[in-house]
């Protein structure tokens, strides 16, 4: 079943066309990598899917729900880790999770259980009563990740989840992403990290200048391009060198 479908997603900021008629499908239970250089339109694409930017043209469907027609219902199906963690500095780690859990309609019992579980898994239990302002970058990122999977939504959208994070925290986050997908959930991952894509993703889309350069499995991409090094393939696609062959 298709978990996420982007249908001709287009976003213009004034004269600047940030994303041009982007279409792709993400199957349920897979990890989908969104790759591209800075300013390629990855974050804008994700933002249109998770409903904080309105597409100029086109739409997206999450678990069959149109994000333009029914944004609230669509948001119920998604957990999001935005580019900036967005944790509240004056709230404690626990309060940050309580806030989002309650906004997502979780009842007290389930919320208590889930927060305890997530803080344990992500080694944040001793930071439970510490204000987020005092957490390290890695701890904040883990907290934001915990927030995104709090009510176990069927689709998880992650924008650079390991960027600027220490090795140990990045490792924990990657492990959680893998486990989340194994449990049958869908993950869309925007990243610069080639190694991360190679290791985690089932399928990938490469975007450059707001345009889709490639969409398919990483194995297919390697075969079509005839190269072993993933980074080389990425660079060539972004430059437009192998567009004809790849797409």
């Amino acid at each position: 079943m298709v978990a996420v479908e982007a249908i001709s997603l287009t976003k213009a900021f004034g004269d600047l066309l940030a994303v041009r008629k982007l279409s792709f499908r993400v199957e349920e239970g897979t990890i989908f990598g969104l790759l591209g250089p800075n300013g390629a339109g990855k974050t804008t694409t994700l933002r249109m899917i998770y409903g904080v930017l309105k597409p100029t043209y086109g739409t997206a469907k999450v678990m069959g729900v149109d994000v333009r027609e029914n944004p609230i219902e669509a948001k119920r199906k998604m957990g999001v880790l935005p580019e900036d963690t967005g944790v509240y500095p004056r709230l404690t780690a626990e309060e940050n999770l309580v806030y989002f859990g309650k906004l997502r309609g979780m009842d007290e019992e389930r919320l208590r259980k889930r927060i305890k579980e997530l803080l344990d898994i992500l080694n944040l239990t001793e930071k439970r009563f510490v204000v987020a302002d005092k957490l390290s970058r890695g701890q904040k990122q883990k907290l934001a990740f915990a927030r995104a999977i709090l009510d176990e939504p069927p689709v998880l959208l992650l924008d650079e989840p390991t960027l600027g994070v220490d090795v140990m925290s990045a490792r924990e986050i990657r492990k959680m992403i893998e486990e989340y997908a194994i449990s049958g959930k869908t993950v869309i991952l925007s990243t610069h990290n080639m190694w991360e894509v190679e290791r985690l993703c089932d399928r990938i889309a490469i975007i450059s200048e707001g345009t889709l350069r490639y969409e398919g499995s990483k194995e297919d991409l390697r075969r079509i391009a005839g190269k072993r090094e993933f980074e080389d393939i990425f660079v060539r696609l972004v430059r437009g060198e192998v567009i004809e062959k790849a797409v």
């Binding site: 933002r47 998770y50 409903g51 904080v52 609230i72 219902e73 948001k75 119920r76 998604m78 999001v80 935005p82 580019e83 900036d84 963690t85 967005g86 944790v87 509240y88 500095p89 989002f100 906004l103 997502r104 309609g105 934001a144 927030r147």
Partner: peptide, 14 residues
């Protein structure tokens, strides 16, 4: 400024 609005708006709340 603290960049918390974006995360807030991802919740299923109008």
């Amino acid at each position: 400024e603290r960049k918390t609005l974006e995360a807030l708006f991802t919740n299923p709340v109008s």
